[in-house]
Structures are given as structure tokens and as C-alpha cells.
């Protein structure tokens, strides 16, 4: 992929670096964690400033805050049922955190912390641990019957149980890799086409016209990435709700 002696360095954007000078170096505070903090600030600002007036007829910001609340609330209650209400704050935090991580990452020069498998896996592991604990607390040892569906022929137990256990254990992997891979792919594509624009554009007068195509593709990609940012946050939240449903109701 070398052109004019330069390579498209699509992965450098994911490189972690300490920020805020000495503080960052001492406490290993990278731009990734900075954007996590920024996401928390944005979410908190949206929810607190938006609801500051608590008006009966909401304004724009309050409408947004209420819509996010009701969207996630309906999602959780719809999937888990009334028992799911106590998990609503957790799923809400997950949804908003992932959504703001994805959206903030689309701002030029920003860092997308959801493009780090360590982050997405940590979140998925959190979900996995929570779901398992919830299952054990509610059902005790009966929870393990989850791995052998009722009514299945006993003969198939040696086959079904390992499959169910593997599928259960692979949940955090699929949950984290899905988000990570989507964000990485999107940002790699954005930077590849952005580099094309610069490369072709530097080829002189004709290059200006040639560069229009990758630029147009990037415009479309940004729109697509906005969709992906929302969709992946939604998927993360709804899968968490589905896992919680399984833990609460055992199938």
C-alpha cells in the first residue's frame, strides 16, 4: 500500500499515549481514559442539565435526556420484564457509555476507546460476571440447569451440556469482539480513504478531481459510522438485557 514512499498508517490512530503531561505518565492516564472521562462528563451533563428544570413540557435537551431514559427503560423492561427494573441503571450506563464512546470517537482527532478490545472485553466481562451472579443469586444451584434444556433427551446430555457451556462462555467474547471490530473497521476505513484524498490530491491539478471520489466515500462513511455507533451501543445493551432475561427466567 505504499505510495510516494509513504504507507497508509491506519493503525497508528489506536496507539495509546499518556496525556496531561506528568499526571498521565505517572497514573498511566492515556487519551483513551481521557475520552472515557469525557463521555462520563457528557452523559452526566446531558442528564443533569437536561433535567435541571424538570419541566412538564420538555425542551430539546430535556427531551433528549428523557428519550434516552425511556428508550433504554423500554428495552430493559421489554426484554427482562418487570424484574429487570433493578438492572436498568446498569444497562443505561452501558448503553450511554458505549454510545458516547462511539460518537465522541467520530470527532476528528478524538480517540475511540471502544476500538480497544481491552475496554470492550472488560465491559463484556462485567456483563458476564453480573449475569452469572444474578443467575446464581436468584436460582441457586438450579441455575446450572440452564446448561441442559428441559425435555432434551438424556442421551444427548454429553453433547448438549458442553455446547451450552461453550456458548455461555463465548458470550463475552462475541459481545466484546463485535463492538471492537465494528469500531476498528470503521475507523480504519475512514483513515484509509482520508489518506487516499491526501495522496491523490497531492498529485497536482488532476489529483484535485481524483480526490473527490474518496472524499465522497468518506462523507458517506461518516454517516454510516454514526449509524454503526448507535447500532452497536443498542446491540450491546439489548444483548445484555437478553442475557439478564436468561439469568432471571432460565430460558
Amino acid at each position: 500500500m505504499a505510495a510516494e514512499g509513504k504507507a497508509i498508517d491506519a493503525l497508528h490512530q489506536f496507539q495509546l499515549a499518556p496525556v496531561l503531561g506528568g499526571f498521565g505518565e505517572q497514573f498511566l492516564f492515556s487519551q483513551s481514559t481521557l475520552f472515557m472521562a469525557a463521555a462520563v462528563v457528557c452523559i452526566t451533563a446531558l442528564m443533569l442539565v437536561g433535567m435541571a428544570r424538570g419541566a412538564v413540557v420538555p425542551g430539546r435537551l430535556q427531551s433528549l435526556a428523557e428519550t434516552s431514559y425511556e428508550f433504554v427503560h423500554e428495552l430493559v423492561v421489554g426484554q427482562v420484564g418487570e424484574e429487570g427494573k433493578k438492572f436498568f441503571p446498569f444497562v443505561f450506563c452501558l448503553f450511554m457509555f458505549v454510545l458516547f464512546g462511539n460518537l465522541l470517537g467520530l470527532i476528528p482527532y478524538a480517540f475511540t476507546f471502544t476500538s480497544h478490545i481491552a475496554v470492550t472485553f472488560a465491559l463484556a466481562a462485567l456483563v458476564f460476571v453480573l449475569v452469572t451472579i444474578v443467575g446464581l443469586v436468584i436460582h441457586g444451584t438450579h441455575f446450572f440447569s440452564y446448561f441442559f434444556p428441559e425435555g432434551a433427551p438424556k442421551l444427548l446430555a454429553p453433547l448438549i451440556i458442553p455446547i451450552e457451556i461453550i456458548s455461555y462462555l463465548s458470550r463475552p467474547v462475541s459481545l466484546s469482539v463485535r463492538l471492537f471490530a465494528n469500531m476498528v473497521a470503521g475507523h480504519v476505513m475512514l483513515i484509509v480513504f482520508a489518506t487516499f484524498v491526501v495522496m491523490i490530491g497531492s498529485a497536482g491539478f488532476i489529483g484535485y478531481f481524483g480526490a473527490v471520489l474518496p472524499l465522497a466515500i468518506n462523507v458517506v462513511l461518516v454517516g454510516f459510522e454514526l449509524l454503526v455507533a448507535f447500532l452497536q451501543a443498542y446491540v450491546f445493551a439489548i444483548l445484555t438485557s437478553i442475557y439478564l432475561h436468561d439469568a432471571v427466567h432460565l430460558h
Partner: peptide, 9 residues
């Protein structure tokens, strides 16, 4: 930094 990221997260 990558490992610290998880704790910060």
C-alpha cells in the same frame, strides 16, 4: 497504558 486502561475504565 493498555492494562491501566482497564482499571481506569
Amino acid at each position: 497504558l493498555l492494562v491501566a486502561q482497564v482499571f481506569w475504565l
